[in-house]
Design a protein around this nucleic acid. Structure first.
Lengths: 218, 218
DNA sequence: CCATTTCTAGACTGCTCAGTCTTGATTCTC
DNA sequence: GAGAATCAAGACTGAGCAGTCTAGAAATGG
């Protein structure tokens, strides 16, 4: 194998990534990928075998690569030392990482391909929301056993926090395009207000329950 | 026009809906639609003109039709009379309506077609989440002016509530397929716990602030 | 500097599918 | 029941594209 071969492979992956994320699987042609990166179509096929194989390799690489970016340092939150600011940092990082044209495009792509490749969406779910919520669950559990929070179901509480933070901006980005992506200040405001509601809502009750009653739960 | 013509048109729409929702725009062929509903391809073209036109008519009808189902009675929540159970009913209805194979499939379809037809996704966003949050915003505002809730930014609070309820189950349904749709009991539990956190977190503060401090917000 | 391997350029094949056309059957109107 | 419109069945066209093939250029290694 020639040394330039690897560079061409990388160039092909970059071009394919850009086109797939921009317009979806079907509307990308092998000719257009080859044209964009200045490589012969035959070389594409000798590297990847087929369009589908190129796509799958690309998406799985993107999926596990993102997880490395977002969660590489498994964060520790000390309940006795500003749990809130550590959580804030974690959530801001996660939200900023998710609200990236690449990641939002990847989600769109994978959702659109769900009928053909459900395993892609499942992988993205595992490496994305599920892992994020698992991390939050661990933190909530710690905060609860330290008496800072009161969460009967830590996993559900973590999911609530996660989607209070991510739901609106992610949904907007998914459906309104990359122009709807918020800036850093908006991301931080989103996290701050969610944390406020979360900590107030799960604050341990001193003695008497709050004024509002809790009617009909069945 | 023959009287049977309208029936055939409806049958065609049903077949097209089923196939589009199941496998996406590209992988459906006009021949397969015609075959499923026992109609000649020519008849399809005389009714709808083109595949794209059929698709657009279908999706827009589905989009606005759903809104009618979900929000037909603009709900009133009396702050002095069990605001929580009225909100509960509203949210359970919304969540159950969204977590339907049809609606989840529609969201997948529209997201997959975003590069080709961004106006579809925009319409779905307007008739779906945006309208749901607008309804919730009105209620939050009422509850706030009645002194039941304390929400500095009612719209953001409504969005937080909305996504606390919808985020996890909707995301799972989008990425894990219709088998991941929750049943009624799970839907109600999801709403109940979200409401609990929401009302506790936004309960008016009596006099002294809660025990936890509020450090560094910048 | 020659032999081998790898690349490029682009022609070519085969298939799928949107959209059209033909022909003949069926149904509605009067 | 005759004439007019509509519909069914399927053949046909043309375009787009995945994947292959060929011929030759360019790099590599001895």
């Amino acid at each position: 194998m020639r040394p330039s071969s690897l560079q061409k492979r990388e160039a092909a992956l970059r071009a394919a990534e850009r086109q797939f994320l921009a317009t979806g699987y079907e509307s990308v042609t092998m000719d257009s990928i080859a044209a964009e990166c200045g490589i012969a179509k035959q070389t594409l096929y000798s590297h990847f075998g087929s369009k589908r194989a190129l796509f799958l390799e690309l998406v799985t690489a993107e999926t596990v690569g993102t997880r490395r970016t977002v969660l590489s340092p498994p964060p520790r939150v000390d309940p006795h030392d500003e749990p809130r600011s550590a959580l804030r940092e974690l959530l801001v990082g996660q939200l900023a990482a998710v609200l990236t044209p690449n990641i939002v495009g990847l989600r769109r792509l994978v959702i659109g391909e769900l009928p053909r490749s459900p395993e892609l969406a499942e992988a993205l779910y595992e490496h994305g929301p599920k892992r994020a919520i698992a991390t939050l669950t661990g933190i909530v559990r710690e905060l609860q056993s330290a008496g800072v929070l009161r969460a009967a179901d830590p996993e559900r509480a973590a999911a609530q926090l996660n989607w209070m933070v991510m739901g609106e901006p992610l949904n907007r980005a998914m459906m309104l395009g990359d122009a709807a992506l918020p800036d850093r200040a908006e991301i931080e405001a989103q996290v701050d207000l969610a944390l406020e509601l979360f900590f107030d809502g799960l604050a341990p009750r001193p003695a008497a329950p709050s004024a509002a009653g809790h009617p009909a739960h069945a």
